[in-house]
């Protein structure tokens, strides 16, 4: 493994550096995905543009309506932001189970999204929160719904030289709640074998106003179980409905077998996991 490292002080500086490089360069933030890929020869890059010094992109901004999370925030930054995690417990739950302490100290939210692993934990949580992804490229900025960011394993809709600047999650107040659950062989340092994030919003009468179910490691990208979501919306969430929704979610998955687990196990487990996540979420809301 051998590469030139270029440190960027701002997005524009990064674009400037990029303009002077031959094709085949990449951004690097925490490097916890990329360096391993380079070492294993899964990816190649002669030049890396280091974003980790762009401190402007390592803040979490709070407004009346949303939180705007800088792409360079680490998992520890997320985990430790009291206001954010109070409103979005799924984010904390996901950030907290990424690797171990060392990984969470350097791995970033932006990297977790841009790497586009179907098993990425924070990506799955953000998917259930309908996050908006603010992207900047040499020719300007744009906003992508997170569901439109992922294409397939390792592939996003980001254009060459585009970077993720911020991720925005909309606040829904007391009547919404989110849960993230993960299955793996170990209780830490574990890439999800299956993960599920559920976000529910109930109206004053306890009827489900909106539901989001995001699943990890059961398809080529972090995916939404949209049929299951639809089943819950407009209904009072009871045990029978949860069971039906979980079964629907299971059928929306197309898991693969790999050394971590068989497709059959993933299929069996995703149903139980979704059932548990919805149940926990609904229970928290009706408390």
């Amino acid at each position: 493994m051998k590469f030139n490292l270029h440190s960027a002080s701002s997005p524009d500086h990064a674009f400037q550096i990029a303009a002077g490089l031959k094709e085949g360069w990449r951004y690097i933030a925490g490097g916890t995905d990329l360096v391993i890929q380079l070492r294993r020869g899964v990816r190649e890059a002669a030049d890396l543009i280091d974003l980790s010094r762009i401190s402007a992109l390592r803040t979490i901004e709070t407004s009346e309506t949303s939180f705007r999370i800088g792409a360079l925030c680490t998992h520890k930054d997320l985990e430790g932001h009291a206001a954010l995690v109070r409103e979005f417990p799924a984010l904390q739950a996901a950030a907290r189970v990424v690797g171990g302490h060392q990984i969470r100290n350097v791995g970033t939210v932006g990297g977790n999204l841009a790497n586009a692993s179907p098993a990425a934990d924070v990506a799955v949580a953000l998917l259930a929160l309908d996050a908006k992804v603010h992207v900047r490229g040499p020719s300007g900025t744009r906003e992508i719904a997170i569901d439109d960011l992922f294409v397939s394993s390792g592939k996003t809709t980001l254009q060459p030289a585009e970077m993720i600047e911020r991720i925005e999650v909309t606040r829904h107040g007391d009547r919404s709640r989110s849960v993230f659950l993960k299955v793996g062989r170990r209780k830490a340092m574990e890439i999800s074998v299956v993960s599920a994030a559920v976000s529910l919003k109930f109206d004053a009468g306890g009827v489900c106003e909106s539901a989001r179910i995001a699943l990890g490691a059961v398809g080529p990208r972090p995916l939404r179980a949209k049929a299951a979501e639809k089943l819950l919306q407009g209904e009072v969430v009871d045990a029978a409905l949860v069971a039906d929704a979980a079964a629907l979610a299971r059928d929306e998955c197309t898991p693969r077998s790999d050394p971590r687990a068989s497709a059959a196990y993933r299929t069996a487990v995703v149903e139980g996991l979704v059932k548990r996540a919805i149940t926990q979420c609904a229970a928290a809301l009706s408390r």
Partner: peptide, 23 residues
């Protein structure tokens, strides 16, 4: 060590799992 036809399938510390202090 998962072997298929003599080839290790999980030859890295991501997929070869020793217990952590949490386990």
């Amino acid at each position: 060590i998962i072997m298929v036809n003599g080839q290790v399938q999980n030859g890295n510390l991501t997929d070869y799992k020793m217990p952590t202090s949490m386990d």
